[in-house]
């Protein structure tokens, strides 16, 4: 059990894992997100916070390659050569999303195959990756179910027999089993009761730290951001209004909007 981020010596890291430049997405006249740029380094966890409608999901969908922005570029350096994610072929992008990336959806039903067993949901990702040995796949699936605190005896049950919190944990196992370099999460604890949330958050915190994952986490909950993220971007009306180290932004907010957000919650 570790609470700490492990950072390689910064001098030894030649390049960011993800370079984002000038991402904008419009819905007709309406701004989804506008001119967003940042670099993400291996092992860093970036939070995107802001009120509902501020453009967090729009931005995340662009970054994860689910939607194409109207302007901007995203360069991913997780493979042998840097990859411009909007100019690669659809096939190449899908391969990337199955292997080097993981996406945790707010609603577990969007990320799980509801008619496939828990073990199948996890094992499928390993088969996508090219694993073929049935026994080894089942063993790893079992191991991952236990890591997300799902009893091994439930391996042949289908997700619809699970509670919301369990479904979300299963989705996380499905995403992390293939050891992605970068994980995108949109309100991962959003639909859950507060008590269930705390357990999931703690699990996420430990997994992200232990695996040294880079992650981008969208949340409107500043306590979630405080617990899980190293850096924060604050969005308002599609624009990033403030960014920095998470505790800096929350404890000494400079922008009027960030001051409003932090003063609305006690003790984050």
């Amino acid at each position: 059990m570790t609470l700490h981020a492990t950072f390689p010596d910064t001098a030894l890291e030649p390049a960011p894992l993800l370079s984002v430049a000038g991402i904008s997405r419009f819905y007709g006249e309406r701004i989804g997100c506008a001119d967003v740029s940042f670099d993400l380094w291996p092992g860093e966890v970036l939070g995107i916070v802001g009120e509902s409608g501020s453009g967090k999901s729009t931005l995340l969908r662009c970054l994860a390659g689910i939607d194409k922005p109207d302007a901007g570029e995203v360069l991913f350096r997780g493979g042998p050569a840097p990859l411009d994610i909007y100019s690669v072929s659809e096939q190449e992008r899908r391969r990337l999303m199955r292997t080097a990336w993981g996406i945790v959806h707010q609603n577990p039903r969007d990320g799980l195959r509801m008619d496939v067993t828990a073990g199948g949901n996890v094992g499928e990702r390993l088969m996508d990756r090219g694993d073929r040995h049935y026994g080894a796949i089942r063993e790893r699936a079992l191991d991952w179910l236990q890591r997300v605190e799902i009893a091994g005896a439930r391996i042949d049950d289908r997700p619809r027999q699970f509670s919301g919190g369990m479904q979300q944990r299963l989705q996380i196992a499905r995403v992390l089993v293939s050891e992605p370099r970068l994980v995108f999460m949109d309100e991962p604890t959003g639909g859950l009761d507060v008590s269930v949330q705390a357990r999931l958050l703690d699990l996420l915190r430990v997994l992200v730290r232990d695996l040294g994952l880079a992650a981008i986490i969208v949340t409107h909950d500043l306590a979630v951001a405080r617990l899980l993220t190293d850096r924060l971007m604050v969005m308002k009306d599609g624009h990033v209004v403030e960014q920095g180290l998470t505790d800096q932004v929350l404890d000494d907010p400079h922008h009027a909007y960030t001051q409003l957000l932090t003063s609305a919650v006690l003790g984050v």
């Binding site: 981020a5 950072f7 910064t10 380094w41 092992g43 860093e44 190293d230 850096r231 920095g244 180290l245």
Partner: peptide
């Protein structure tokens, strides 16, 4: 930058 600050803290 943030990751340097975190390394200095660690």
């Amino acid at each position: 930058v943030p990751r340097t600050v975190l390394d200095v803290r660690r």
